[in-house]
Design a protein around this nucleic acid. Sequence first.
RNA 1: GCGCCUGUAGCUCAAUCGGAUAGAGCAUCGGCCUUCUAAGCCGACGGUUGCUGGUUCGAUUCCAGUCAGGCGCGCCA
Length: 587
Amino acid sequence: MKTALRDLLLHALDSLRRNGALDTPAPDLVIERTRSREHGDFACNAAMLLAKPLGRKPREVAETLVAALPDNDLVERVEVAGPGFINFFLTDRAWHEEIRRALREGVRYGHSRSGAGRAVGVEFVSANPTGPLHVGHARAAATGDTLSRLFSATGWKVYREFYYNDAGGQIQNLALSVQARIKGIEPDDPRWPADGYRGDYIRDVASDYLSGKTVSAGSAVGDYVRKYVRESSKRGLDEAAPGTTGYQVTAKQDPDDLDAIRQFAVAWLRREQDEDLRAFGVEFDVYFLESSLYTEGEVRRVVERIAEQGHSYEADGALWLRATDFGDDKDRVMRKSDGTYTYFVPDVAYHLSKWERGYKRAVTELGADHHGSLARVKAGLQALGIGIPKDWPEYVLHQMVTVVKGGEEVKISKRAGSYVTLRDLIEMAGLDAARYFLIARKSDSQLVFDVDLARAQTNDNPVYYIQYAHARVCSVHRQMHDRSIVFEQHEALKHLERLRGEFARCVMVEISRFPEIVEAAADNREPHLLAQYLRELAGAFHVWYNAEQFLVDDDDLRNARVALANATRQVLANGLGMLGVTAPESM
RNA sequence: GCGCCUGUAGCUCAAUCGGAUAGAGCAUCGGCCUUCUAAGCCGACGGUUGCUGGUUCGAUUCCAGUCAGGCGCGCCA
């Protein structure tokens, strides 16, 4: 609807320009929804932007613009108001047409092609396989997955990526912890490894290792990823798009083979993380191993390239990146004096791989406690000198999550020890509430997850409020069935003019906002906009539902109302689907 | 000390690249079920947008400073 109005205005500007009444360039005009009904449905600020260069009063410019607007059946009337706003009041017909569109497009309503099929890589969670996923990962998973769904809806080809370290010191620590458990050493024993992982899950890994179990992580890893990276950079993304291949590790049962223990433990935890994420409705397209960057020489290549570009120097026996040339606040070690690389170099190599694989956009989601690494990775990418834009990749940082239950913070779980796990959260709050609550807030503000509220089956709980609106429409259909009332949509669409009054109107207005919300949420990487919107749509629907009876005797009126209820249900279902929340037919 | 994030109603949070009179829910108080699910609806109460300046037609939004909270600042990842 916005674009239709924009076209009208541009048309008006054009005709003024032809008349010589306007000699300034087209302003960067904004058409927006009004906050108050008095100001019409949409408002435009063009006149205020033009006033200065023209040296005329804004309201005068507005009048001129309004007079030049072409005829159409979208706009009922136009007013010039306030400092020079052009306010548009739309015809009922305009709203009815939008409802027709929503019903016609069905599951596609709210989708767009603005991504034009280009590739976007969304990296999120990226937890190391050293323990169960915690609530911070849960927030990342919900946000990243919802963002991915939003990108899909706006016409992007989305690749969900999970990057993990499968070789470093933390993994060694994991292997040592499991080995200690295998040998019957408890965390409080003096022989327990320093900084060992103390959670109960370590005992489970040890016991499965001793009993010779085979575990399979169901997703692409290892050789497959290396092959994928190599081939995709040659052939383009689509041909090399990964399927799902499993990999299996069978426990050797030998307590002294630390390497075997490590491999088994990593696979064991990878499987557990996969299962938890799948239970959370999240699946990845690409699992990317940090180790593959070393075996393929990618890390070395990055360092050499940066050196060739003259952005490195040697000092104190180490090789440094001159990160200060690229906005970082200090230079950073790339290769330590012992010859190994610091963690951010493979990170640069990994992002380079994304670039080479053709990601037009790359979104990297990180916990805010890692924000320090952002500047140096960007500096590294710039130092390569291969024309990577400064705003690539885009980062989404999410702040901490605390879990509150019974008015007190929950800090521990039995399995993991010192933190609350994703699994705990799903068990405490349920899938739908967990996903909704984790994305309902802007990611850069801290989140207090109130378990009691998430569990509440009352009007306090926005998830139930939204789902209830959906279930109510379904219930209306059950009633129609019971009363043998027939509803035919194409017949109903002929009588939408029977939808009058503020209640139905508010619902129509809300429905028409959906495509704009989806677009804005994807563009700005702010999935919380969608969560908030759905609550507002559900609110408008509940008000209407209470004010007007749908199943009336007047056939045309009844059909029109049911059609609008159906459109509401469609948008609720589409929107909830993008959040990964179910849309129940009854509650 | 430096960097990033946050500060909006008693509480939890919104506010569409700077828009008009800052909005919801909860809590409190008062109403609505012989009608499609009351897991709902209606009404009332509630604000110096942390503070001080600046930019302009207009600032919760942008800039500077300041206060408070969170997170970072390693040849750890």
